[in-house]
Design a protein around this nucleic acid. Structure first.
Lengths: 156, 156
DNA sequence: ATTTTGGTTCGTTTACTTGCGAACTAAAAA
DNA sequence: TTTTTAGTTCGCAAGTAAACGAACCAAAAT
C-alpha cells in the first residue's frame, strides 16, 4: 500500500466515521472534523488545514470547533511566535469512558426514582420493573468502582 | 397528597422526562408518549387515550408509536372482542441495559481498530491512545460477562 | 500607518423535521 | 348494506437547523 493509497483510505474513513458521529448526535461538520483529527496521520491541524481538507467554510469550521471544544472532545495549543492554533483530539484517561456511562446511569436512576415516588401502587408491574432497573443500576455503580481498581492493577 | 395532586405531578413529570427523552434523540411526541407510559399509574393506554392525554393529533401519535415499537421501547396487546390496541412499555430483562452499552462499545472498538490499521506510525501519540482505548474496551467486554454471572447469583 | 493573518460573528438561504388535518382503509357493528 | 371504530397515509404549513459568504475584528507584520 503506497502512502497515497493509505491517505485516500483515511479520507474515506473520515467520511464514514463522520457519518457515525452524526448518528451519535454531532452535527455533520463537527463529526467530520472530529473524525479527521482521529484518523489522519497528521495529529495537529490548524484552522485553515481543517477548512481546506474538508472543503468547508471558515464559519462552519469555527462554530463546529467551538462546540467540540466545549464538549471536551478536542483542544488546541499554540507555538510561541505563531498565531495559529493547532487542534488535536483531547486524550482522556481511558477509564473515563465508563465514568461517563456511569454518570448517565446515575441520571437515569434519579429519573426512575422520581417516577417510583409518584406511583399510587408500589406493587404495580411498572413499579416493580422500575425498582428492578434501579437495583441493577446500583449494582453497576458499585461494580464500576471495583473495575477501576482491577483495571489499575492490570496496567501495573 | 390527594390522588388529583399526584396525577398532576405525574403529568408534570411526563413533560420533564419527555424533554429528557428528546435530548436522548427521540422526537418530541415520541418522548412524551414514552414518558407517559412510564410515569402514569395506568399502565395500558389505548391509542385514543394517548391522543387525548397528550393533546396531539392522531397522525403524530401514529407515527411516533410506530417508531417506538420499532425501537423496541413499547409494545401492545389486544383483548378478544376488542379492536383497540393497548400500549405499554416493553419491559426488558434489566441486564440488557449493559448488553446494549457493550454492543455500542463493540462498534466503537471496530471503528478504532480500523483507524489504527491505517496509521503510518503505530507509535504515534494517537495510535498509542487508540490502542489504549481498545485495550480497555476489551477489558470491559470481559468484565460484562463476569458481571452478568455475579448479578444472576445476587438475584438468587 | 497600512496590510496581512487568523479567525469570529451576522444575516441569509436552503434543506430537513415536526405536526396537523383531511382523506383514506380495513374490520366490525348495526 | 351502511355506519362506526380504530387507526394509517398523504400533502401541506410552520418551525428549526446547517452551512455559506460577507463583513468584521484584533494582533502581528510590513
Amino acid at each position: 500500500m503506497t502512502t497515497e493509497e493509505r491517505i485516500n483510505l483515511q479520507r474515506q474513513l473520515v467520511e464514514t466515521l463522520g457519518r457515525i458521529n452524526e448518528h451519535d448526535g454531532m452535527q455533520p461538520v463537527a463529526g467530520r472534523i472530529f473524525a479527521l483529527l482521529m484518523v489522519m496521520d497528521k495529529e495537529n491541524f490548524t484552522f485553515d488545514e481543517i477548512v481546506e481538507e474538508l472543503n468547508i467554510s471558515k464559519s462552519s469550521a469555527s462554530i463546529a470547533i467551538k462546540m467540540l471544544q466545549i464538549r471536551g472532545l478536542i483542544e488546541y495549543f499554540t507555538l510561541p511566535g505563531d498565531r495559529k492554533r493547532y487542534f488535536r483530539i483531547k486524550r482522556h484517561e481511558p477509564f473515563k469512558l465508563f465514568e461517563e456511562f456511569k454518570n448517565k446511569m446515575v441520571e437515569k436512576h434519579k429519573n426512575w426514582q422520581q417516577i417510583i415516588a409518584l406511583k399510587a401502587d408500589p406493587e404495580s408491574k411498572n413499579s416493580k420493573y422500575l425498582k428492578e432497573l434501579c437495583f441493577i443500576l446500583e449494582f453497576f455503580q458499585e461494580s464500576v468502582e471495583k473495575l477501576r481498581v482491577q483495571y489499575d492493577q492490570l496496567k501495573k
